[in-house]
């Protein structure tokens, strides 16, 4: 898959399918946006954890974003959901949270200096790389430094800065591996 051939990757199709699934229609709010997937391997199985966060469109452009509200885990081989967690019930966050209803940031973030077209191209490339990554996790194959560098570079560019701490709480090793923490 290339960034411009218009086809969807398995990861992207899976992400889209969640909201249309009976589970998604039942528990995912209509206005929820889909976050970046997090790979998880347990025993022989590989899973994809997909966070959802609330996004409210701003008429002046872009949208305001709120902390993740839910997490759905799907098995990579079958795309069947295996777990749903609502963060309105309990949260895993290790840092202080803003008052409920307070946005945590904006999309696109002012610091993300890319055009919409560039963003979409990166998004498509990254999601196709997720396919490769997840398949490789199943096979327990090695991941080259070059590939990881490109993946991390893309992920670092598209992850909304205000959501990054939340992602790190959800999957510290994954994000540390591909987006090393900045040392102050």
């Amino acid at each position: 898959m290339t960034a411009t051939d218009g086809r969807v990757s398995r990861t992207e199709a899976m992400m889209q399918q969640i909201k249309r699934s009976p589970l998604g229609q039942q528990v995912i709010p209509l206005e929820a946006a889909i976050g970046w997937p997090v790979p998880l391997r347990k025993g022989d199985q590989v899973y994809v954890r997909v966070p959802f966060f609330t996004k409210r469109d701003n008429p002046a452009g872009g949208a305001e974003i709120y902390p993740p509200s839910a997490l759905v885990t799907l098995r990579w081989a079958t795309a069947i959901p295996v777990e749903y967690v609502s963060f309105s019930f309990s949260t895993p966050w290790t840092f202080d949270q803003p008052e409920p209803g307070t946005p945590i940031g904006r999309f696109p973030h002012p610091a993300v200096e890319v055009t919409a077209r560039e963003y979409l191209a990166m998004r498509h490339e990254l999601l196709s790389m997720y396919d490769e990554l997840l398949d490789t996790l199943v096979e327990r194959g090695p991941i080259s430094g070059e590939w990881a560098s490109r993946f991390g570079d893309l992920l670092g560019k598209v992850v909304e800065p205000s959501l990054e701490p939340y992602y790190r709480d959800l999957a510290p090793r994954f994000f540390d591996r591909f987006i090393p923490r900045k040392t102050s």
């Binding site: 967690v85 327990r140 090695p142 999957a171 510290p172 540390d176």
Partner: peptide
């Protein structure tokens, strides 16, 4: 890298 980082679940 054999993806060992995927084994840990931060949550």
């Amino acid at each position: 890298d054999y993806g060992d980082w995927a084994e840990e679940d931060g949550f």
